[in-house]
């Protein structure tokens, strides 16, 4: 594995420590933006879970759609932030909306616990289907959303 080309776009949407400006210690306002966004995102996730409770042996649709929607939204957000170029986004936009809201909204731990719960309930087939379907849908959502947003931005730039 090699060091990324200097100036190359970050893979990590939260931090690119190859960018010297990002190597400085995080400022209090960045941490506050991440915390505030996390509170918003987690509250929304909790709300979805209350509206759409999954039984002990049922397919966890709330976690599934929360994760898929959050992945689509980060695709849109990152395409807007990294490709709009001309106008640099507000420095707290990514910490708040990306790291905070979408990071707090989506969850990997509940996904793993859902799988384990289905397995304990004797529903191995459903557990495997849930694990695979979430992964495929999440990756498909981030790809489709980022691609469509880039297309839209390009179309607007050409017009």
């Amino acid at each position: 594995m090699t060091r990324p080309v200097p100036g190359a776009e970050a893979i990590d949407p939260d931090v690119d420590l190859h960018v010297p400006a990002q190597r400085t210690e995080p400022q209090g306002r960045v941490l506050a933006a991440v915390a505030a966004g996390g509170a918003v995102g987690a509250s929304a996730r909790y709300g979805v879970a209350l509206l759409w409770p999954a039984g002990p042996a049922g397919f966890p649709w709330a976690t599934f759609w929360t994760n898929v929607a959050g992945c689509a939204l980060i695709g849109v957000l990152m395409a807007l932030i990294s490709e709009e170029g001309r106008r640099s986004p507000h420095p707290l936009l990514r910490p708040f909306a990306g790291t905070g809201v979408l990071g707090g909204f989506t969850t990997f731990s509940a996904y793993a616990v859902d799988f384990s719960r289905l397995l304990d309930a004797g529903r191995a087939g459903l557990a495997l289907a849930y694990a695979g379907l979430t992964l495929v849908a999440a990756l498909g959502a981030v790809w489709a959303a980022a691609s469509l947003t880039r297309l839209a931005l390009r179309g607007r730039g050409a017009g």
Partner: peptide, 23 residues
Amino acid sequence: LLLGTGLCGALSTYSTFSYETLR
């Protein structure tokens, strides 16, 4: 609710994981 839904839910992320995989 405090440690599971709140702490672990916000500590883990599916969105950053999927975006990094895409990139």
